[in-house]
Amino acid sequence: MKLLPQTALIHARRRAPQLLNSIQPPIYRASTIIFNNTDALFNRHWTDEYDYSYGTHGTPTTYNLVDQIAQLEGGLYGLLAPSGLSAINLVNSCLLAKGDEVWVADNIYGPNMEHLQYLQKQYAIQVKVYDPTNADSFRPSAKTKLLWLEAAGSVSLEFPDLVNLVKKAKHAGVITALDNTWGAGLAFNAFDFSEQHLSVDITVHALTKYPSGGGDILMGSVVTRDKTLYHKLWQMHALQGVSVSGDDVAQVQRSLASIRLRYLQQSNSALTLLDWLKTQPQFTQVLHPADPQSNGYQHWQEVCESGLSAGLVSVIFKAEYDLKAIRKFCDQLQLFKLGFSWGGPVSLVMLYQLKHMRQLPNAHLQQGILVRFCIGLEQTEDLQADIQQALAIL
């Protein structure tokens, strides 16, 4: 039938062929997805490998990235979320119910602990804290449903006893969820590590960091090898209406090709700075999983056989330097910018008072204020000079 001009603009009579081979796949921006006919509408099911039914459930753009992240981490099935924290919350909301018990490392990512404490207050979920480098401190009960792992731990960077923690959880029938942001699927395979081919059940990854690599995208992922567990997570994902922008997904996908190169450079820069930082008299302790003096070094060696580690290194200032002095040091830095996150091109710095963040004694940590350096893509010599000039004012 002949269409009037306004209608013709919406229902164009011609459409260029949609099949085209290019380096970057096309970007699909979709809320509504058009079904060819009623058979296509009613014969589909949400458990189909690629269910195109509504934008929040997936498009070729989001599925492409999910497949790549799952492959990177050694998993089979995955979901995307608007941030790393959103991905964490998805796991907590899906797997924990009233009266359940969840165990978290003392060095857990702070916002995850805050979310769990909220669930504890609202829904009587019990939150237990363990020492990540001592598997004996994890004591699951009949109520324990979830064990959170973090390798390496936030801020103080202890590498956990993954082997024995996962063994213990599996023996007790407890689901294991690993925050895999530090390893990024490169330092070790979370779904096949150690000679016993141990595997965590779930990985959560802040794609905001290394996969994005630009410091400009917020996104997270949840990956598993267990199809039943994936379907359970998918249902919660759908119920919460979790979704991400197709344009943001394309940006992350574009960066994935260089993730290993960037990870290697930042890891090597951190190791170079580590050796130099250990010679500086202002620090009472330097923290890095690959340093033989760091707590959890033997666990890092056991799991990260590649010798890789992320571009993060923390220092604890001697107790004679108070908060005012450390703030002055941070403000004096020129190349290191004061900000949260990491994995981007610009080096970052952040200061922490661990006494306000930890629940266990942490006898392996010296007293003093901690500063974490997140290494970017600048040349190491320039970063060292920047720290040196800032130390000179103390």
Rank of each mutant, 00 (worst) to 15 (best):
L277R: 01
M357E: 07
Q24E: 12
A257C: 11
T38S: 11
P26F: 02
S154M: 05
G296E: 12
M219C: 14
Q240Y: 01
N64E: 04
G183S: 15
L348R: 03
L256W: 03
Y28F: 12
G84S: 02
L312V: 04
S199N: 10
A152T: 11
G78K: 12
V174G: 08
C304A: 11
N64W: 00
Y352F: 15
L80A: 12
M350T: 06
D291S: 07
I393G: 04
K145G: 08
E302D: 14
Q366A: 15
V127A: 13
V155Y: 11
Y297R: 02
D136H: 10
I23H: 13
Y263L: 01
E114N: 10
Q18H: 11
L41E: 13
D67T: 12
D226T: 00
F188T: 06
P26H: 01
M236A: 08
A124K: 13
T380M: 02
S22I: 01
E195R: 13
L335W: 04
Q117P: 00
R262K: 11
I259Y: 04
K278G: 06
L207S: 04
H57G: 03
G343M: 05
H299Q: 14
A290F: 08
Q298E: 12
P25L: 09
D67S: 12
H356Y: 10
L90C: 05
D382A: 15
Q282H: 10
L178C: 04
D136R: 09
E302A: 15
H57N: 07
S341H: 10
K355S: 15
A310T: 09
L76C: 11
L239M: 10
V315W: 03
I316W: 01
H171L: 10
G185H: 11
L85A: 07
P140K: 07
A190I: 01
